[in-house]
């Protein structure tokens, strides 16, 4: 059974909306359904309102926005590199963004100037994609892409660990796990304000890239012959992905595999057309991260189980399956 494309988008959107609601209603403080909605919408009950508006709402917004950004970035990078294994976590974009964020925090720059945090993460993400393109070439074979990704990601993770270990702050060293695995616990509206403009800008940049990515599936020469400016396309796509991965990682750490699994699941329903896959992956990514964030609160309410643990548990087997398939296809 195949869903028509608009129905697919509607179904993904509905799933996202329901999971958004679930994210608002699930939490360690047991608040009744009607109480929590009354507090959220009408501001009834001072403390409950505070919990709903300042603790749960930012968490749900960030879950949806970051999930959408990760799904969209995965679809963008896969379209650009024409490789189903291109994913921000696997090719080192997320860990480089985390390195940028850690640098901004540990040097104290982000305390003096809040925007420095997403900007530094963006710079880290951009640098990693630039290095990746240099190493693997614009058409990067799967092997060079993954190997370059392993190298970049190991280097970024090790540097992050080094900085956090050298920090005078006793808590910093324990946060390596947050930067590697990601979490939305105790984020606030400040983080929403910080991340949302960057995520939105990245999504906007993806729109003009969508059509060109469709043409690119025919090959670079064919795409160029029908008027696609490849340089501009590359720049747009890389900038969009870096903006989204950078801002997402700056506030939530590196949440892996969302950009891999979501486009993979939706590719057939989108006729393998990148332009369709972008919107579907954004909606699907939002649903997946919201679901993961609800799950971590249900599985271990008092442990701050990391988001990336769940996404990797689901995503890593997918990744292995994809490797097997690309090998069978002789790539």
């Amino acid at each position: 059974m195949r869903l028509p494309y608009p129905a697919l988008l509607a179904a993904l959107g509905l799933a996202g909306a329901l999971l958004f609601l679930a994210s608002l209603l699930v939490g360690p403080a047991a608040i009744g359904l009607s109480d929590s909605l009354a507090a959220l919408i009408h501001g009834q009950g001072e403390a409950v309102t505070l919990v709903m508006r300042e603790v749960r709402l930012p968490r749900a917004i960030l879950g949806a926005a970051i999930g959408a950004a990760l799904g969209l970035s995965g679809a963008l990078l896969q379209g650009l590199l024409r490789n189903p294994l291109a994913e921000p976590g696997l090719i080192g974009t997320s860990s480089s963004a985390a390195l940028g964020a850690v640098l901004a925090i540990q040097t104290g720059v982000s305390a003096a100037f809040a925007l420095a945090l997403p900007l530094a993460a963006l710079a880290g993400a951009l640098a990693s994609v630039a290095v990746l393109l240099l190493l693997s070439g614009p058409r990067g074979s799967t092997l060079t892409l993954i190997l370059a990704g392993i190298g970049i990601s190991s280097l970024a993770t090790a540097t992050t660990a080094l900085i956090l270990n050298l920090s005078p702050n006793p808590f910093a060293a324990n946060e390596i796990i947050f930067w590697m695995m990601g979490s939305l616990a105790d984020r606030s509206m400040l983080h929403v304000q910080l991340a949302l403009p960057f995520l939105g800008l990245g999504a906007l940049l993806a729109i003009p890239a969508a059509r060109s990515l469709d043409a690119l599936t025919l090959g670079e020469d064919a795409a160029a012959s029908i008027g696609v400016n490849l340089r501009r396309l590359r720049l747009l796509t890389v900038l969009a992905a870096a903006l989204m991965v950078g801002a997402a990682t700056a506030v939530a750490g590196a949440v892996g595999f969302v950009g891999l699994v979501v486009p993979h699941l939706l590719r057939r329903a989108c006729d393998a057309r990148p332009s369709r896959l972008l919107a579907a992956s954004a909606l699907g990514g939002a649903a997946v991260v919201l679901a993961a964030d609800v799950a971590v609160r249900l599985i271990a309410p008092d442990r701050d189980l990391k988001l990336g643990v769940l996404t990797a548990l689901v995503g890593a087997p997918f990744f292995l399956h994809l490797i097997l398939r690309t090998r069978q296809e002789g790539l």
Partner: peptide, 20 residues
């Protein structure tokens, strides 16, 4: 508060706490 910064301590500056 300890020198240097950490995400762990950020929750102590959470706007919801200030709003109390």
């Amino acid at each position: 508060r300890y020198p240097g910064a950490s995400r762990s301590e950020e929750v102590l500056d959470h706007p919801a706490l200030a709003a109390l």
